[in-house]
């Protein structure tokens, strides 16, 4: 009997069921190898067995995302595979997104290592390369012969727990994950060598290509300020004395929500700051410098705006991962939207 079990995911086309006309095909489970699974099984050798293949139409998956995912997870689960593999999807867009989606879900929910393979311009690559290892392929199934051995090598490493090396070595799309290593030379020497090349006009390779930050379109302005509810959010680390929720001084993993209902000002006896990135003495003496409750309450009473939201949201901005900040923003935005807030003042130190 083989030592390691694999479950494979294919779309209707690669499973030989049909083309576009069969894209509504519902998830189906077949024992053993289907389609490209044959070549993969051959490349993996006798220690590995593709015990089952899940087939799903691309449109069905895309239009019934949650249901299809749940169904497929159940199908995969009972086999307790060592590795879950999807594709390769090459440049098939819906198939690529489905491979990425199902791989991510299997890894998150079942804790099984996952692998897929796609062309770099497949939208699934950009959407999932951070979450899933995606082997690089050409843009059509003509590249199957190259994709299969690369996939087989990685599947073996995943099954045996062998270290997976960098993207250039292993042939997968760079995931944008920053990993430490000990270089041969120290940073100053590497920097100087880079500078010498740059001054000569010779090619050089930066350690960190500049990231591109995404953008959100500006929200529409508040139309009726007299009846608008305004909320305050801050990254300045202002928290109740004693920091009851243990928000970190740097690289925060959580945010806090604290009531300001009935208060006219941020009292230094009640609030402090735990931000690790600036001299805290001023804000500790007067937290209104970050959460401007004193003036907001006066403006509210004067009718300059409708109502101040009853609590403020807070975290530490310094060294806080953009991924965490995005999650905080999403959670805060969701709550404020539900609670009928119309505009937000976000104060950063």
């Amino acid at each position: 009997m083989a030592k390691y079990k694999i479950v494979h995911y294919l779309n209707q086309f690669f499973a030989g069921i049909g083309g576009e006309e069969m894209a509504d095909y519902k998830p189906e489970l077949r024992e053993g190898v289907v389609g490209p699974g044959g070549a993969l099984a051959a490349a993996l050798g006798p220690d590995y067995e593709i015990v089952a293949t899940v087939i799903c139409g691309d449109n069905y998956f895309g239009e019934n995302l949650d249901e299809a995912t749940d169904t497929i997870i159940e199908m995969v689960k009972k086999y307790e595979p060592d590795v879950f593999v999807a594709g390769p999807a090459f440049n098939a867009g819906r198939y690529g997104v489905a491979c990425g989606t199902i791989c991510k879900a299997v890894e998150e929910r079942l804790g099984i290592p996952v692998l897929t393979a796609e062309y770099e311009e497949n939208p699934g690559t950009d959407m999932f390369k951070k979450d899933v290892i995606i082997v690089k392929t050409g843009n059509s199934s003509a590249d199957m012969k190259n994709a299969i051995p690369t996939m087989a090598k990685l599947i073996k490493k995943m099954a045996t727990g062998e270290e997976i090396l960098g993207p250039a070595v292993e042939g997968y799309h760079e995931r944008g994950i920053r990993v430490n290593y000990f270089a041969e030379k120290r940073g100053s020497e590497r920097g100087l060598e880079m500078l010498i090349k740059k001054m000569k006009g010779e090619p050089f390779e930066t350690d960190l290509p500049m990231p591109k930050f995404d953008r959100v379109a500006p929200a529409d302005p508040i139309k009726d300020i007299k009846h608008a509810t305004i909320a305050v959010v801050t990254s300045g680390g202002v928290v109740p004395q004693g920091n009851p929720d243990h928000i970190e001084s740097s690289n925060a993993t959580k945010f806090g929500e604290y009531s300001i209902a009935g208060k006219d000002s941020m009292s230094p006896d009640e609030f402090t700051t735990i931000h690790g990135g600036y001299d805290r003495q001023f804000v500790m003496a007067n937290p209104n410098l970050v959460v401007p409750l004193d003036v907001l309450r006066e403006l509210e009473k004067a009718g300059e705006f409708g109502k101040l939201y009853d609590s403020f949201f807070t975290t530490t901005g310094t060294g806080t991962a953009t991924g965490s900040a995005a999650k905080f923003g999403d959670a805060i935005g969701k709550k404020l939207k539900e609670d009928g807030v119309d505009g937000v003042i976000l104060v950063s130190t």
């Binding site: 920053r178 990993v179 290593y181 350690d207 290509p209």
Partner: peptide, 12 residues
């Protein structure tokens, strides 16, 4: 961040 150490990070 002045390059004293050999530690470095790369993209995976």
């Amino acid at each position: 961040a002045n390059g004293f150490n050999k530690l470095a990070a790369r993209g995976y």
